[in-house]
Simulated assay, not measured.
Amino acid sequence: MRNLEEIITALKEYDGEEVRIMEVCGTHTAAISENGIPDMLSPKIKLISGPGCPVCVTVTAVIDKLVELAMREDTCVLTFGDLIRVKGTIKSLADAKADGAHVRMVYSPMESIKLAEEDPAHTYVFAAIGFETTTPVYAMLLEEAVKKDLKNLKLLTSLKTMPEVIRWVVTNGGGIDGFIAPGHVAAVTGSGIFEELSKELGIPFVVSGFEGAQLLMTIYALISMKGKTGMKNLYKDVVSYEGNIKAQEVVNKYFEPSDSSWRGMGKIPGSGMTLRKEFSPFDAGSIGLDEDHMPPGCQCANVLVGKLRPYECPLFGKACTPDNAHGACMVSTEGSCYNYFVSGRK
């Protein structure tokens, strides 16, 4: 492979057929923006942010359920920061908190163990959203809750898996020529799942880390592989072919595959993980949360699958800004709209 300086020159001067490359990891979306990578590429290289931000793909029914739970006198909802500001059908968890609901931001799911132990009079519900990256953490949380017999700790789950949504994007006309495979997800699942997807879909995948130099090398590799199948792993210091077997085992102990609803995409068969029946007492009502009500004019659904660029949404930068976000893609620091806005990207 060429050295980095040669790769940068080649990417800037590329004059072949247009290449559409999608990343499906919110951290990649943020890293691409932070490193100014779009400005280093030929206009014929199009980077598209796919459905890789967990907050962005969570349907409004999940938010509505969390708001309902938080309004109960004996219940407190625990969540990461980004989710607090995402609106449901009517209000966000931040709005509910202003109305007196019990909502608390935490930095780790494991904090909920101590809270539940110290306050048995209240039920603590953790908003468990995410992809294969965070599901093992929720499994470890359950492991501890089961061991301690914490009957006042529950999860409301909206857990997604990558392979099925990638299939959905390709099948539904995304026009994608290659995928930057999510490094964090691959660390758990292994790079092998992307090799299988490449063979099935006829599109190349390159597993990447998050440094600017590695992302540039990844984009260069995908351009070189355009029109071919194959998977390359450029993140071998973290990602193996088989993945983290122990993490996979603990996830399979507590969760099983399920159909799941995605913002703007509807229900995708086999694209989620739900609690196994034997652990249903720890579920706070996750089943059947499928409804999704986009704010009027919001185009997050089309942005998430690459049909529109964020700035093509009529609300972008006008009614919808990071300080007054209408859509989930503008709320999260991993969201494509947020990153387009803060970087001034076009």
Rank of each mutant, 00 (worst) to 15 (best):
V169Y: 00
L153D: 08
A98L: 04
A96P: 14
A96Q: 03
A186K: 14
K151Q: 12
Y138I: 07
A145N: 15
K147P: 15
S112T: 05
T135L: 09
A121D: 14
R167N: 13
H122P: 03
P136Y: 04
F126V: 14
A121H: 09
G174D: 12
I129V: 12
P120M: 02
L153I: 12
Y107F: 04
F131V: 09
P163M: 10
K91W: 03
P120H: 03
K91S: 02
P109T: 00
D119H: 04
K87S: 01
M110V: 03
A96N: 02
V165P: 10
A187S: 13
A187P: 15
V137E: 05
M140V: 11
A181M: 15
L156I: 12
N152G: 12
V103C: 06
K154W: 10
T123G: 10
I180T: 05
I166L: 10
V185E: 07
K114V: 05
E195A: 13
P163D: 01
F194M: 10
W168D: 04
A186G: 14
L93C: 06
D177A: 05
S108K: 01
S112H: 00
L150T: 11
P163F: 01
T89P: 11
Y124V: 12
I129E: 14
L156M: 14
A96M: 08
K114S: 06
T171H: 14
S112A: 02
A187V: 11
T123E: 13
T161H: 00
S108V: 02
W168H: 10
I129S: 05
D99K: 01
E111R: 07
K148G: 05
S191K: 04
V185H: 08
W168L: 00
A94N: 09
I176C: 08
A98K: 05
G175P: 13
A128P: 10
E143R: 07
M110C: 01
T123M: 12
V106A: 01
H102P: 01
D149L: 02
K87Y: 00
K114R: 04
G174R: 11
G173K: 15
V146F: 11
L142P: 04
E132S: 13
M140A: 06
T161A: 00
D177F: 09
F179Y: 14
I176P: 11
P120C: 02
E144P: 02
K97D: 08
A145L: 09
L159V: 06
I90W: 01
S191Y: 06
E143V: 03
G190C: 04
